[in-house]
Design a protein around this nucleic acid. Structure first.
Length: 843
RNA sequence: GCCGAUGUGGCGAAAUGGCAGACGCAACGGACUUAAAAUCCGUUGGGCUUAACGGCCCGUGCCGGUUCGAGUCCGGCCAUCGGUACCA
């Protein structure tokens, strides 16, 4: 590999320019008020999803999105924008902690080493980040404000009147703790014994931990929760105007899972107790022949009859012993137990049996359902298994059988609403329920409150203390709250977090102890885009001035894996901070783009297991950073999944070498000298045309993030100039500017070399304006017209651009090839598309 | 099951409803070279036909529709990938 003759000396010029850029602070974006800040220039904030600095280093997937944003950033700078293009590290997280547990090396050390490696790799690719704005979520200067934001959330509640977060002091009720946006609850959590921690629902895949793939079981624990559900409606509504891929919007909407329906109260014959159920089909109320409670529902204890007590206890034990894995794996086989009690169907007045079954979830709705077997697949399965009564209450529109029909039809066997269509029936029966005080319209969400605490060491400690069994906020003056030094990072095994191993730290005062949990990894990434705007501010998380100037993020590029969680959490925090008056925008990310996954050369997902992982530095070693960048963009559309190809890299590398040789030629001694073919001559007409076509296409393609076609156009440019005897310097300069965002080292170097013989002021390529194409050079004197008969091309002719439609038609009719094909037919119609084709329709 | 995305040469791909396959890879042929590498030039969707120039037919997952004209728009399928899963 290393014997390969270099197509051009990228190994010399790339480090040279990278050092120069650093030295000149070339990519530093001054904030309002700083020297060099020009308020007349528009701002552009282009953001990458910052990486978790893992031990493995970058793979070729990371730089895909990073290259795209870098091209946009460099392009916008040419356009004169004040560009904010930062990078940082999402450095809290499980791998460093696991490594610490295995080796005893403090996570901070591991993290520092990994960051150094990542940063070196990113710099070697030549990204134009403003490194003066680098942030690390594990740095106390940073997480101080993560803790501060948590306290803002803790000190707030969601006022349903204003639909906004407000300071808790505006809450009039008796128990503020019951409405705080950050609260403590005893919840059934996903406990992972292996990791010794709870996990968010989102971190559990198929009953196993996302990290490590260990089994996860349900277990009740006292946890910190964030009341994201209060924002469900706004998280859906305010998504609408954003320039995000429709697929991602849909994913978020589905995740939030809004469904409209009614809550219906079922009375019990023998007690004053009532059971509420949520249904989206109140029109099927007459068909409710039984009721099911979630096994965990607390009502079960009160309602179960003596005779059924043992059976119920056995069933509940069986359920709780099942891990989530088993629950999901055990197909859809319905199970359940009758609890020996009955409820009264409020519409029919019938007594219906109450069961418990694990297909009813405690976490959704009221943890109880009405069973309508005729019109719900799951209920039908359950009723058939346990021989429960089935009543048809919806007539399907066609002849399909009513039982098992779940769509809209006409109500039957339902005295109050018979004959009404499903939407009308829903309306009518709900009105009736509301009148009688038996129910009400309501909306339910799949979204659950965010389980926000973890039993880990390597995370932000909560700025919370406990006194007399009650939580209290630390004052802002005690931030940052730094975790204690430990040398054993293992969880204690009882569910007590590792922080419990530092008793001195835990003891806050005689009467108070610190919270032992830490925040999840998501916390730091919920607001990092804000901190970049003002990364060293010691007084505020972001100054108002910086926030007003830089926000929102104009372009955010990252992987789909964050389509739901990160983006939802960040939007939630942003809205809280907005409501509290700390921000001026209610959404953080204006335009979002997901880059596609890069597969291995074998078409499989890159992984150690397949041995198909590509290391960017290996590629750069052989072909240079510019070739690496250009290949990543030339592979195909940014958002598409596509396989890596080394020969493809070689092709792009050849292209760059051809650019190099347009300017430089090698002498006998193997030195690169300025080419003799260069001259300050006016490009000819054909050259001007390709030059302006290139300006036009590259500009439009960068705006559209269609980088592969932009590169193809530059290849066309270079092909057109490769064979000419005299290379016009002006055309070359234009190429170098539009190429610069893609291959900045090469373009900068050639620009400089060119300047030695053909000086230009100012001399730096980065001081050039972005070229504007001139339409007059794109027009051609002649165009080729396709002559079709009945849609098939029969001939092509060159015609002057100025011919009229009538002339074109006449020309087509007169064409011998056309005549040959219409011989004996009648011409019905002639379609003339100027500059394209003539279609003679004949039958 | 549901939701979403994608199906175009040997491969990555391109194409405001208007000449399908730009650009690149691979392959083949040629030039340069003692030779190779590098570089440069050319050919390259399939089939049929012609001594040759050339000509004809087919072709964008499948079936149908709209249109003078469909890779592109509409309807119905199929396949692959991704997400999600008892959410009442």
């Amino acid at each position: 590999m290393n014997e390969r003759r270099q197509p051009y000396p990228f190994d010399v010029i790339e480090p040279k320019w990278q050092a120069l850029w650093d030295e000149r602070r070339q990519f530093h974006a001054p904030n309002p008020g700083e020297p060099g800040f020009d308020p007349a220039q528009p701002k552009y904030y282009v953001l990458d999803m910052f990486p978790y600095p893992s031990g493995a280093g970058l793979h070729v997937g990371h730089p895909e999105g990073y290259t795209a944003t870098d091209i946009v950033a460099r392009y916008r700078r040419f356009r004169g924008d004040n560009v904010l293009h930062p990078m940082g590290w999402d450095a809290f997280g499980l791998p460093a902690e696991q490594y610490a547990i295995r080796t005893g090396q403090h996570p901070e050390v591991t993290t520092r080493e990994n960051i150094a490696r990542f940063k070196k790799q990113l710099k070697r690719i030549g990204f134009s980040y403003d490194w003066e704005r680098e942030i690390t979520t594990t740095s106390p200067d940073y997480f101080r404000w993560t803790q501060w934001i948590f306290l803002q959330i803790y000190h707030s509640w969601f006022n349903p009147e204003t639909r906004k977060a407000e300071p808790i002091s505006t809450y009039q009720g008796a128990d503020p703790d019951s409405v705080r946006l950050a609260y403590v609850a005893e919840v059934a959590v996903n406990w992972c014994p292996e990791l010794g921690t709870v996990l968010a629902n989102e971190e559990v895949i198929d009953g196993k931990s996302e990290v490590g793939g260990f089994p996860v079981v349900r277990r009740p624990m006292r946890q910190w929760m964030l009341r994201i559900t209060a924002f469900a409606e706004r998280l859906i509504d305010e998504l609408e105007p954003l320039a995000w891929p429709v697929g991602i919007k849909l994913l978020q909407r589905n995740w939030i899972g809004k469904s409209e329906g009614a809550e219906v109260q079922f009375a019990l014959p023998a007690s004053a107790e009532r059971i509420a159920v949520f249904t989206t089909r109140p029109d099927t109320l007459y068909g409710a022949t039984y009721m099911v409670l979630a096994p965990e529902n607390p009502l079960v204890d009160r309602l179960t009859s003596a005779a059924q007590r043992q059976a119920v206890a056995d069933y509940r034990a069986e359920i709780s012993a099942k891990s989530d894995l088993e629950r999901t794996d055990l197909a859809r086989d319905k199970s359940g137990v009758f609890i020996g009690a009955h409820a009264i169907n409020p519409a029919s007045g019938e007594q219906i049996p109450i069961w418990i079954a694990d297909y009813v979830l405690m976490g959704y709705g009221t943890g109880a359902i009405m069973g309508v077997p005729a019109h719900d697949e799951r209920d039908l399965e359950f009723a058939q298994k346990f021989a429960l009564k089935i009543i048809e209450v919806v007539q399907p529109p066609n002849d399909t059988p009513a039982t098992g029909f779940i769509g809209d039809g006409v109500a039957i066997n339902s005295p109050l609403i018979d004959g009404l269509t499903t939407p009308e029936a829903k309306r009518r029966i709900t009105d009736w329920l509301e009148e009688k005080g038996l129910g009400r319209r309501t909306i339910n969400y799949k979204l659950r409150d965010w389980l926000f605490s973890r039993q880990r060491y390597w995370g932000e400690p909560f700025p919370i203390i406990w006194r007399d069994g009650k939580h209290e906020a630390l004052p802002d003056s005690e931030l940052p709250l730094i975790p204690p030094a430990l040398d054993d990072f293992k969880p204690t095994g009882t569910g007590e977090p590792p922080l419990a191993r530092a008793p001195d730290w835990v003891r806050y005062s005689e009467a108070a102890t610190r919270e032992l949990n830490t925040m999840p990894q998501w916390a730091g990434s919920c607001w990092y885009y804000l901190r970049y705007c003002d990364p060293t501010n010691a007084d505020r998380f972001i100054s108002q001035e910086a926030e007003r100037y830089w926000m929102n993020v104009d372009l955010y590029v990252g992987g789909t894996e964050h389509a739901v969680l990160h983006l939802l959490y960040a939007r939630f925090w942003h809205k809280v901070l907005f409501d509290l008056g700390h921000l001026t925008t209610n959404e953080p990310f204006q335009r979002l783009v997901n880059q596609g996954i890069i597969l291995g050369e074998d078409g499989r997902k890159m992984s150690k297991r397949w041995g198909n992982v590509i290391d960017p530095l290996d590629v750069i070693e052989d072909y240079g950073a510019d070739a690496f960048r250009c290949y990543e963009m030339f592979m195909g559309p940014l958002e598409q999944m596509k396989p890596w190809s080394m020969t493809g890299v070689e092709g792009v590398s050849r292209f760059l070498a051809r650019v190099w040789r347009l300017v430089m030629e090698e002498n006998q001694a193997g030195e690169w000298l300025l080419s003799d073919a260069l001259a300050e001559v006016e490009p000819n007409r054909a050259q001007l045309r390709v030059m302006h076509a290139t300006i036009k296409k590259v500009t439009a393609d960068i705006e559209a993030l269609s980088f592969n076609t932009a590169i193809a156009q530059m290849m066309i440019f270079v092909n057109a100039f490769t064979t000419v005897e005299t290379v016009p310097v002006a055309a070359l300069r234009t190429l170098l500017v539009v190429l610069n965002p893609f291959a900045p080292h090469l373009a900068s170097e050639l620009w400089e070399s060119l300047g030695k013989k053909f000086p230009l002021s100012p001399p730096e390529i980065t001081d050039q304006p972005w070229p504007e194409f001139q339409a007059e050079f794109l027009v051609e004197d002649e165009v080729e017209i396709a002559l079709q008969v009945n849609g098939k091309v029969r001939d092509r002719v060159q015609v002057p651009i100025v011919v009229t439609k009538e002339e074109l038609e006449a020309l087509a009719r007169a064409n011998p090839r056309v005549r040959e094909f219409i011989a004996g037919l009648t011409v019905r119609k002639v379609v003339v598309i100027p500059k394209k084709l003539v279609n003679v329709v004949a039958t």
